[in-house]
Write a protein that binds this DNA or RNA. Structure first.
Length: 302
RNA sequence: GCCGGGGUAGCUCAGUUGGUAGAGCAGCGGACUGAAAAUCCGCGUGUCGGCGGUUCAAUCCCGUCCCCCGGCA
């Protein structure tokens, strides 16, 4: 098992600077666990660490992906595990920081090994979904995989699509893969959560948006758009990116764009807190106590 | 000052031919195993502007007062 220290929390809770301090205290290096901070053309909008922060300590898995390329939990686990192993062998502690809950879950608890998706099958299913509606496909899923169908809602297009896709590609239901083909985790370590209060976080989120704009977020979006004009591209799905793109393309006023950006950021922080609170292994820590992280990490029995 | 229109949930508004009211958004709670900054689910008591009157019963009708928005002077 590769020892790692994980730090998560809602967006804007101060993860990046806490992680930097933690890495400095532990002689560690920082590894990104955020599904949006991988995009190379959107460093400001996705709140990637600043050049100063990156100079202070090595940072890995940030800003390496083009806007039209997709990252996934499984792909990330491969990258993160490989990098963590290299760091471990060099005597460094990997400090894994980010806001993507599923990524931590997959890293620390394993993820199902399923053959890669076939874009043609996915597109065909998406087409059927639009024509027939998701309840119809949910019904179809219920026949092949009643257990999984019972756990998801008939309106949950994304999960229905995924489950049917796996069924079609592999001939086995999703539930079978979950129970019989879990890849065991290769990393082990504490999962610290910065337990920020939403009410106190909101003004900070608003301030951060203004700061991003002052740092050239709009120009960044325009440039990224010139390099990837497909609004459906994976990189554009991030909060802030989507709203700025809509403004750049003329479908939103700037005021509405900002309003939506904040609203969506807040809603996202809420979802993150819901996810993290439900992790049984989570070690919750209020934002003003992040200075205790090095001591807590050292005390962890790997 | 006069003439219209309006005052109902945090916001925008609907509605009750009189039986104390409901949508969207916001907000809150939740789910989540390869798009997760994604995708989805659940939750609606509020002096129906104030005070009187009519009525078994008024948020609804009548009177009056207050406030907002137009228009005319």
């Amino acid at each position: 098992m590769i020892p790692v220290v994980c730090l998560a929390g809602p967006t804007g809770s101060g993860k990046s600077s806490a992680a930097l301090a933690l890495a400095e205290a532990l002689n560690g290096e920082i590894l990104n666990a955020d599904s949006r901070q991988v995009y190379s053309d959107l460093p400001i909008i996705t709140a990637q660490p600043t050049p100063q922060e990156r100079a202070a300590r090595p940072h890995h898995l940030y800003g390496f992906l083009a806007t039209d390329k997709k990252i996934s939990a499984g792909r990330w686990v491969e990258l993160a595990t490989a990098k963590a192993r290299v760091l471990h062998e060099a005597g460094k502690i990997p400090v894994i920081v980010g806001g993507s809950g599923l990524y931590f879950q997959a890293l620390l608890h394993g993820i199902t090994v399923i053959p890669p998706a076939d874009p043609a099958i996915g597109a065909h299913l998406a087409g059927r979904l639009n024509k027939e509606g998701s309840p119809a496909l949910h019904l179809e899923l219920a026949k092949a995989d009643p257990d999984y169908a019972a756990r998801i809602h008939p309106n949950d297009r994304q999960r229905i699509l995924r489950a049917l896709e796996v069924l079609e590609i592999t001939g086995r239901p999703f539930t079978w893969w979950h129970t019989n083909a879990m890849a065991p985790p290769l990393c082990k370590g504490p999962l610290f959560i910065i337990n920020a209060d939403l009410r106190r976080l909101t003004p900070r989120l608003a301030g951060r948006i203004e700061q991003m704009l002052a740092c050239g977020a709009l120009e960044e979006a325009k440039f990224a758009f010139s390099r990837c004009a497909d609004p459906e591209a994976p990189g554009w799905s991030g909060i802030g990116a989507a709203e700025l793109l809509a403004y750049v393309r003329g479908s939103l006023s700037f005021d509405t764009c900002r309003e939506l950006w904040l609203k969506n950021t807040r809603a996202y922080a809420k979802r993150q807190l819901t996810w993290f609170r439900a992790r049984p292994e989570a070690i919750m820590l209020p934002p003003q106590q992040t200075d205790k992280l090095p001591a807590l990490a050292r005390a962890y029995k790997f």
